[in-house]
Design a binder for these strands. Structure first.
Lengths: 205, 205, 205, 205
DNA sequence: GATGAATGAGCGTTCATTCAT
DNA sequence: GATGAATGAACGCTCATTCAT
């Protein structure tokens, strides 16, 4: 029915607007310091209305985090897949990630501030979802690297460990940039990350 | 005076006992979900007594985190310094860190859960202290690596970035172990970390 | 809009109901011994609701005192101004005041118990407001008496001091009645107060 | 026994020292804002020791107020009795009172701040004691004035009411001076009080 | 469906009093 | 007797959630 389609579209738009507002507010202070009234005001809804879109505060929070995180990884993977060869793919993986970091520092501060907020069921399930997203992404990287091993471009090391190492090198660089904001883009480190990941620090004589 | 010495010793023991209990409890749930009454009960004191040792909840939390973190880095550095040559020092740096992680997983969960809790003065100052401890430790690593550069053992790359890369590789491995607890010790990854840090993933033909 | 008018009217009625309840309770014991829960229960609201009408306990208290005191003085002055000549005006000033005392003994007990409760900002400002109301009222009396001096009916004494003397004679009589409740109305003293104020106690031979 | 006499003397001195300290502290803030620890520190005793002299906080407070108030009225009466004739006695009554006010403003602020602190038994009994002291003093004044009536110096009005009027005129002047501190001594008003009390404000033609 | 007023459970902190030393 | 550490009850206030309109 056309009518219900429009309704649904509107519903989703409102929902997205709330999530966007919530993201901004949760980024600025701790979970417990954000009130539903605050989110309601800032997004132009009544407190009661929020409960039509989300079961409660926890659900609003976990939904926001979970959806945004998936979006981030999806973006990175999409860019990566468009690169031509393996080297360029790895380079893009690093660069697209850092670019997202640069553009969404507020959101990512949530992960520095704390991924786990309470021990309630909703939050545990968020935690699981986050880990899941991480692992999916690492698996994506792992597959990438496995191709490199097969092709002889990379050393034959445990591919999962390698993928994690790369992911955490990127992540570490991001965290550092967020905690020590510089005018320099986090993307300026992409070359270094790539180099150390590929060649290590040891001088080969 | 002997009397006051004993008193002071007892005071410090009680204080330490509270910190230990608090560490366990704060590790299990979020800051806001921990109540003073809970800590008091678990440590065998009355709520009022906690306030003789700490100015308040925030102070109890920040003191605990700050003191323990400093202790951790000090331990790692002490071990590292005892190693004979640079290679062994780097190896020990990795291993001692992972060993501390294995033994103090509860405490370190706090950092996965979130370092920043509210934006109060006490918490901001904690945040600063934590960053400070990190940077001191990274500087320690940096100095180590600079020796390696001078001696020609390591490639001539920015030493700070190298130090950070190493630190975050260790940290990442720790985080992973904590989030995906295995029966395997986190120390089992020390060889891999050392290898990837020294040699990278690229196959040299 | 009719709707919002009704809302506002209801809001004001509830607010007034709370103030009335609070007046009774604060009159019965000291500020610190009154709890918000008590006022909430007695006025049929939840504790949380009180905070929709007043910023906090202090604000509830100071608002109640300040508004009621202004109301009292306004009433007295209104009555006074309606009297025909100076003598009758003074008489009415005394009588209207005593009448208010009789009808609002509970509220006025607050002033016997103590006008100043803590030294917080809110309370200091209340103290200032009270002094202000007093002085306005005394100034009103002063103007009255000055007319009497000009017209030659009253002795040429400092008008401010005279006004204070009259005000405090009334107040003293009120206080006495409140502390030693008799079946007799406080208004029975109006003749005596007027007499002593006008003629003093000395026998003129 | 000499020994116990000395002990008792020392006991009383300590007790008096505590009362003096308490007077100063209670004068500065509200009853509930004064802590036993504060009084203990300021008077050089331990908190525990205070309980050897007074049953508790309330008892300490009520004892202090009650004893000091009795002392004040006793002083005033002693001075009054030394005056030669009735006129001078009334004059002295006013002056000695104002003089005490000037010297003990801190203490008397307690009565402006609030005579009734809680509704506990101890406080109710204090309230009674205070009223009692007031009435004794007013009776003393009453007797004085009755002599004046008998001797034909004063008009034949209800002596109790006259006594109260005089007492409250003095009290009002004191309160005003305390609330509006001037460099001028409160004693400067004694002439005015005497005049208005004796002659009223009405011009006799 | 939308609103926002009402609810009331929950917590950090203080401090009078006790009592082991 | 003197001490002061330990106790724990008590309270103002917030805010997620509900529900009458």
């Amino acid at each position: 029915m056309v009518r219900s389609e429009r309704k649904e579209r509107e519903f989703n738009m409102r929902r997205a607007a709330i999530l966007e507002t919530a993201e901004r507010i949760f980024a600025a202070k701790s979970y417990h310091d954000v009130t539903m009234a605050e989110i309601a005001n800032a997004s132009g809804f009544s407190t009661g209305s929020l409960y039509q879109f989300f079961k409660g505060k926890e659900n609003l929070y976990t939904t926001m985090v979970s959806e945004k995180l998936d979006f981030m990884f999806a973006e990175v993977r999409k860019s990566t897949e468009q690169a031509k060869d393996l080297l360029r793919k790895i380079e893009t993986l690093i660069d697209a990630h850092l670019q997202f970091v640069e553009r969404n520092a507020d959101f990512l501060m949530l992960f520095i501030k704390g991924e786990k907020v309470t021990s309630s069921d909703a939050m545990s399930s968020l935690h699981e979802k986050i880990l899941n997203s991480y692992y999916n992404h690492i698996t994506f990287i792992e597959n990438l690297l496995e191709n490199g091993i097969k092709s002889g471009m990379l050393r034959n090391m445990p591919s999962r460990d390698m993928a994690e190492a790369l992911f955490y090198l990127i992540r570490a660089s991001s965290v550092k940039w967020m905690l020590m904001p510089t005018t320099e883009s986090p993307r300026s480190k992409r070359g270094f990350i790539l180099d150390i990941f590929l060649n290590g620090v040891k001088k080969n004589d």
